[in-house]
Amino acid sequence: MNFTFRIWRQRTAADKGQLVAYPVSDISSDLSFLEVIDTINETLSSRGEETIAFDMDCREGICGACSLVINGQPHGPEKETTTCQLYMRHFSDGETITVEPYRADSFPVIRDLVVDRSPLERIIQAGGYISVHTGEAGDANATLIPKHQAELAFEAASCIGCGACVAACPNASAMLFVAAKVTQLALLPQGQPERLHRVIRMAETMDHEGFGNCSNHYLCAEACPKEIPISLIARLNREFLAAALVGQEFLEPPHHSVHHE
């Protein structure tokens, strides 16, 4: 198969980038999308030119490192598929394929197709966990969790943190990402003590990092390679509302009980 890849090149965050065309010919349809970029990079190497930078690692759709906007779609045209799981048989012979980095103010370009997704880290750091020290846990079977509930929690927990939801959203909202973690922990008995506090802290951090709000475009769920359902955003809103009704002053511990080091 033959293709023209138009790939975004940008040397540094400060530089103005541009799309550069790279023709590729005689490619097997069994090649993965990233293997084509590997091939282009090998050609660039053989000319002594700097290779195209792009994030990837596991190449089996689970680590969430790969990103890319392919012909305008995060992770490309196939549903429920990460970029690393795309194959050239999903494209037509002779096609021109445009490859760009995620476009979102909160995800600045580092180089070429590599963006900085660290704002997602800080959202998790703000409360996307259960506060348990190593060693504190009781016997694992002391807490019973109905199978159905455990499976719903699992589905929410399958988010790979790739950021495609943000890239797909016209508002660059991270609500699907936040909703997935909030839902997982809200569904589990272990997550109850911090439930209200968690959603407030994560939502505040999301705003603080400059992500937009949801205005019901549903493009995040379309782009999600792990099928995180849009209904979780509704749940996130309910969780947030419940916490807001309780009020901030009842969520914070009284001052005298806070220990400072």
């Binding site: 846990a137 969790i145 455990a150």
Partner: peptide, 15 residues
């Protein structure tokens, strides 16, 4: 430890 952290291991109908 992992269960306490909220790791969603597979469960049976009895929980």
């Amino acid at each position: 430890q992992c269960v306490a952290q909220g790791v969603p291991f597979a469960r049976e109908y009895g929980g």
